[in-house]
Design a protein around this nucleic acid. Structure first.
Lengths: 230, 230
DNA sequence: GATAAAACCGAGCGAGCGCTCGGTAAAGTA
DNA sequence: TACTTTACCGAGCGCTCGCTCGGTTTTATC
């Protein structure tokens, strides 16, 4: 008995993006928009490539498979993308940019205490990897298939993303909110936990992304050594 | 600044396999042998394949690259392994079997309280993924490159392995040692943390595997909601 | 309807793929 | 020494790969 009907939010973060305080002056995008996930809306050729890469990996996928899946001939596919590598790079950019945009929006959207920002970032990471699992999985697992400067750019984007979390954890340790004698490993462990969601979570499984985010929010607080009563 | 000289063990598990009774040749399995990691000792062709797969993935590696790396011609390589797929399967078996053997040995070797077994299993997982990172990484990331029954066998081995940890967590929740309202997610998160070590840990980095295992032991206890004073 | 751009495709090129054929060289055994 | 087994390789087969050539069809605009 796991998927009980009653949906309850066990962390304060779950209430943060509720629609009540929608009108905030100066915000470019609507409050809480970082946790709205409409269907992916990838261009058809990219969607086909993503599905193929998920099944067989980048090197295990042929350009003919992608074309067939997209309902195109091989030259028809090449009308939209100049190479197989370009498909992978476009998917990778899509993943890294969407995660970054949502993460920075989540951090800006609401109370600014360390714990509030931590909760929102964890929620953002978990929701993203649940809703955009395939995109995130390819971006993570096909790094070594990126050629030339694309690989360095991916790693830079990943480090920038990782710095968001480790910065917050360092802050929390400094202010005594977190008890983490080794912040680097703590940060790495939490990141791994959240990105790992993309490896096993199924959107049609027992948990909704929001339920999962609640549970992971609690787990990550524990892992970070958050003060018990907060 | 980070790799301080003083090596301290922060969990009881760290003391279990102290070096005194390390090498007992001839014994079926000496106490603590599950945490002794001598150099991998893969057959040359397998070692070459592992290095190639790490760099370019299974589908991105050619049989000629493996042969060259092994110091063999292509037919020379095929004298030892009948196909490219057989190389991957052999590496996968090596990884899954070694982890299973070490894990069951760790569980049997020492005090049998839930927390003792939890600590030893976490230590075993962390040490394995630190010392055998490449092997573990390939076994994890090339599942979809396994053909035919090999994939099903890998998944069965993985589930069996995963059950070791989730069984202990269920026990701990039942006896009140762990505070985990959602044991399935807790177990999954901890597994992900430990296997994730293979993705970033470098043996020549700042931390020794033993230091890392100490830190991860503490983190995993926190994540599992282990009672504070234990 | 005329024109131009965008979208698309049948056929196929050169290269590299996994793998094998038919052998030789070295090592073990009597 | 004769024989067998193990370890190995030069050459190359058949095939599929990523990609492109030289077109036709569809759509947008006037």
């Amino acid at each position: 008995m796991v998927g009980q009907g009653a949906r309850q939010s066990t962390t304060p973060a779950a209430a943060v993006g509720a629609a009540k305080d929608a009108a905030r002056p100066g915000a470019a995008s609507a409050a809480g928009a970082w946790q709205d996930f409409s269907p992916p809306a990838l261009r058809p050729a990219l969607a086909a490539a993503l599905a193929c890469f998920m099944e067989n990996g980048y090197h295990g996928t042929t350009i003919r498979q992608v074309a067939t899946r997209a309902g195109l001939s091989v030259p028809g596919l090449y009308h939209h993308f100049p190479s197989k590598q370009a498909l992978l790079v476009a998917l990778d950019d899509e993943a890294m940019n969407e995660l970054w945009n949502r993460s920075t929006a989540a951090l800006a959207d609401g109370p600014q205490s360390v714990l509030d920002r931590f909760d929102r970032l964890i929620r953002c990471l978990t929701l993203f990897h649940a809703h955009r699992g395939e995109l995130a999985f390819i971006a993570l697992s096909e790094i070594r298939s990126l050629e030339g400067s694309a690989r360095a750019e991916h790693i830079a984007a990943r480090d920038r993303q990782q710095a968001l979390l480790s910065g917050i954890i360092d802050e929390g340790v400094a202010t005594g909110i977190f008890d983490a004698p080794h912040p680097r490993e703590t940060s790495r462990a939490i990141t791994t936990m959240c990105t790992g969601v993309a490896q096993w979570y199924r959107i049609d499984g027992e948990l909704t992304p929001e339920e999962l985010a609640d549970r992971y929010g609690r787990l990550c607080r524990l892992t970070a050594g958050a003060a018990a009563g907060s």
